[in-house]
Nucleic acid binder design. Structure first.
Length: 271
DNA sequence: AGTGGCTCCTGAGCGC
DNA sequence: TGCGCTCAGGAGCCAC
């Protein structure tokens, strides 16, 4: 499941591959993935890509007439840039053809979406307008997090997964952040100290940066825009390691469900 | 306003 | 071998 580091990796690749390219046409074998609809893509006919950037887990492709194509990979989405005559990717749903190359959006579970909208309204269309702050921005601090959490109830992991509180964290990195901070994912936020919020803030930045440095986590189906796997999966401390020994204390890691998500933690290292 | 639960989807893994 | 069941989960939506 692509989260902030995976999306950042893809965006970095895409920037090199499609900035300066002219849009030609869109093809969708699964039209439901395209919003508001395929015919809206005439808006970017012959327009040139001026930038590719990330907001939360959204990939944004900007064109010179200020229209923006936004992509969210959700659970199983993938993007591969290839030549026009390359065969379709497995589970290819949408294809964007540029003068120089062909962007393939493939998605086994069909949860992913591709939107087109003008810079004035694309944020409302896609839901980007509801996103919380970028955790890797210099302005994101312990105070930002505590302010955004004010008045909320629930447990730490739920807060980390809430895109309106902080943007870009998903299930894998939420577990890793909780481990790094030494706090159980099911700790009630009303029982967290200032020192613990500081640790959580530091761990968010550290774990996400590490994910980017490792070009993402390739559990199940993540690949970058070249179709290559990342290698952050080799650095995970808890996610996917239920019943295995904790690297730090050799205690078997525990797994349970929290807010409907599989969650792994160390009962000794995390309090 | 905030929260819990349902829904969208399909491949993988399992028991029989 | 093959069927049917359950699970995985990001985020929108609805009822409360």
């Amino acid at each position: 499941m692509p989260e902030l580091p995976e999306v950042e990796t893809i965006v970095g690749d895409l920037k090199k591959q499609i900035v300066g390219s002219r849009f030609i046409t869109i093809t969708a074998t699964y039209p439901k993935a395209v919003e508001p609809g395929l015919h809206h893509f005439h808006l970017i006919q012959r327009q040139t890509v001026t930038d590719v950037y990330r907001r939360g887990k959204f990939i944004c492709i900007r064109f010179d007439n200020k229209n923006i194509v936004t992509i969210h990979l959700r659970m199983s989405g993938r993007i591969v840039v290839s030549t026009h005559n390359a065969p379709a990717e497995p589970f290819e749903r949408v294809r964007l053809d540029f003068n120089t190359c062909s962007l393939r959006f493939s998605d086994i579970r069909k949860f992913g979406r591709v939107w087109i909208g003008h810079e004035n309204d694309y944020q409302d269309l896609t839901g980007i307008s509801k996103l919380g702050p970028e955790p890797l921005a210099d302005s994101f601090s312990f105070e930002t997090l505590v302010n955004n959490v004010k008045g909320r109830k629930g447990v730490l992991k739920k807060i980390l997964l809430d895109q309106t509180i902080v943007a870009g964290i998903g299930n894998i990195y939420a577990d890793e952040i909780c481990f790094d901070a030494g706090i159980r994912p099911h700790r009630g936020i009303d029982r967290m100290t200032t020192g613990e919020w500081t640790r959580v803030t530091q761990s968010i930045k550290k774990i996400l940066k590490q994910g980017i440095e490792n070009r993402g986590t390739s559990i199940s189906d993540f690949h970058d825009a070249h179709g290559e796997k990342g290698f952050n999966q080799d650095h995970l401390k808890v996610y996917g390691r239920a019943k295995c020994e904790c690297y730090a204390c050799q205690t078997p890691l525990k797994r349970f469900k929290i807010v409907g998500r599989g969650t792994v933690y160390c009962p000794k290292c995390q309090l």
